[in-house]
Design a binder for these strands. Structure first.
Lengths: 352, 352
DNA sequence: CTGAAAGCGCTTACAG
DNA sequence: CTGAAAGCGCTTACAG
């Protein structure tokens, strides 16, 4: 364990005060040229490295932000994160993830702000902590019927609109009977479900519910889409969309539905669903088309490549990071913007 | 922006000194019972939260460690990370990942130590920075022929031995001609390749090289397995095993090999390979068996589930984290241990 | 152009 | 049992 070299050591060797050393190292304020040179040399010789914690304390800035996100096995979130890293880099900021933070842990984390993965998380955070503990935050939003807290700027992916587009896309491919597979109950009030119901009502009439592959009857715990809002719920829970996709396949097979396409909640979910269907002898897309949301790395590296709708995830992440940093810096920002969306065509949808 | 509440504020209101407040809050040293109570009450009323940066500075401990890992889209690494979180939690430590850190950035990160994802990274780090900058570190190792630096404790997954086991497993399933698909050149000196060659030499004789699916001829950049050791190489590079798997499939098809099974470098690689093979009309495992390394979440959520060999990844991660923390704490630790390995049977291998 | 001083928020040996 | 004091490593107005 080497002795830590400090600005004091450099000052002593250079025969100046710490102030001068600091000014030199930070390139701020006046320092005589020769002294500057000598100080830099000594710093180099001593292998001086600044102490980030001390600087943070003094400047009241850690230059770190946190991506608050529970599900790291969801490639969509990693896509976002990758984008955040890029966006933050330009501002000299680092982005941290920590997979199992309870809200209480956040205050022990050395960050200047938080990016929430969804509006329900942000909302709950604001309710539980917002009043007593100030920390700049922004959130990704999916246009769900949850009031995001006023003080938290939002960048939205409007999943309802995406559902409309996805259905329009499948229709253009000749599909009429399109089922929807969701981790949330039929009665749940969320963007994708509502939009699917609205679009399919006049196709399925009174059998509508039958084409909604509702796995909640098969799982022990019933999660609504606003799960995070429930203050009794533990935050360390990780949603396993992949496992739920398998259950949705079972339901589909059990009901012997005549749908020619299934829309899935997201790529993880679709992966689980397709895997189960193929195990039961189905071929995708020959026997059945599957489409989903997120256009994640996982969906792309799946076989077949999953046709999926989403924003540019990296850009989404990058925008979130820069929004937060500009917010932290006190710049003028928009409190609400939307990400454009597009369809990533894969191999899981066939024209009929 | 609320005014930050400090221990000073509490002291003033309670009519005591900051020392007493600190002792109360930290539950250390003597404090009169009634005072203790009052201080706690006031702290609560004021919604006091300790300043982690200040505490870190004073205690010379951030209670944070870093998982230095570039490829977050590789589910194996996320598996490890998940385990680290669990292991570190018991010690009150947080584990951070940051996907695009150059070595130079590490010194700006507020952590007490580092976990390197592989021995080549650890080795390069030690060479470039180890002398001038002290930071406790441990590393995962894969038994590759790279000398991990002496000061860095190692936990190893012996991939050579795993290759032996994987081949034995496939042989028991009746496979004799087993190809190997790797991101690294045939000439590269690494555990998996060496072990495969050793095992297959007497099966393939002078056609051995033909069954080594070497994608390096198809890629612009030639990476050896010790890529990270090359100081000219940028660290921000992300390996795309998935894409390379597709290339390996092309080679396999081009050579019209009579192998009945392909061993893949890892699950990401296998995913890319299978995806491409299926696109070309192959069915896995009906037409061809595929097996790989890592037993990651990705391989499990793939279709077919990829048969794969690996340690218990979460335990691997957890062990790395606790090893590092105990190292930081100055406890006596083992500088070298090995993780036991097992085969996760999936759906991608068939008996012939 | 320079340096002594106060301060960021906390801790901890030490004298009382 | 308590509090003044020095200190963690750095920054920055301010007086010279």
């Amino acid at each position: 364990m080497e002795q830590k070299v400090t600005r004091k050591d450099i000052a002593k060797l250079a025969g100046v005060s710490v102030s001068v050393v600091s000014r030199t190292l930070n390139n701020s304020g006046y320092v005589a040229e020769e002294k500057k040179k000598r100080i830099l040399e000594i710093a180099n010789d001593l292998h001086y490295v600044p102490h980030p914690v001390a600087m943070s304390l003094q400047q009241a800035r850690t230059k770190q932000i946190l991506f608050y996100c529970k599900d790291l096995h969801n490639a969509f979130n990693i896509d976002l994160y990758t984008g955040m890293l890029e966006g933050a880099k330009d501002y000299g900021y680092m982005v941290l993830i920590n997979g199992n933070l309870e809200f209480d842990d956040i205050r022990n984390t050395m960050v200047d702000g938080i990016i929430f993965q969804n509006e329900a998380l942000a909302s709950r955070y604001a309710k539980e902590y917002g009043k007593n503990y100030y920390m700049p935050a922004v959130t990704a939003s999916f246009g769900e019927p949850v009031d995001p807290p006023k003080a938290v700027p939002v960048i939205e992916w409007d999943v309802s609109e995406s559902m409309d587009k996805a259905i329009a896309y499948l229709r253009k491919k000749g599909h009429r009977k399109i089922a929807y597979a969701s981790p949330y109950p039929y009665s749940d009030n969320n963007g994708r479900s509502n939009s699917w119901k609205r679009n399919m009502r006049y196709v399925f009439r009174d059998t509508l519910e039958n084409y909604y592959l509702d796995i909640s009857s098969l799982t022990e715990q019933k999660y609504s889409s606003t799960y995070w809002l429930d203050e009794r719920s533990r935050l360390s829970h990780e949603e396993t969309f992949y496992d739920k996709g398998g259950l949705a396949a079972d339901i589909f097979l059990g009901r012997k539905l005549d749908a020619t396409a299934i829309l899935c909640f997201n790529d993880e979910f679709a992966a689980g669903l397709i895997q189960r269907l193929e195990k039961r002898g189905y071929r995708i897309p020959e026997d059945l088309s599957v489409m989903s949301f997120d256009a994640s790395f996982h969906g792309r590296s799946f076989s077949p490549i999953i046709t999926s709708i989403a924003p540019d995830n990296k850009k989404f992440g990058s925008d979130l990071a820069t929004l937060l940093i500009r917010y932290i810096n006190g710049e003028k920002i928009s409190y609400f913007t939307r990400q454009p969306v597009h369809i990533r065509e894969g191999e899981s949808v066939k024209a009929v």
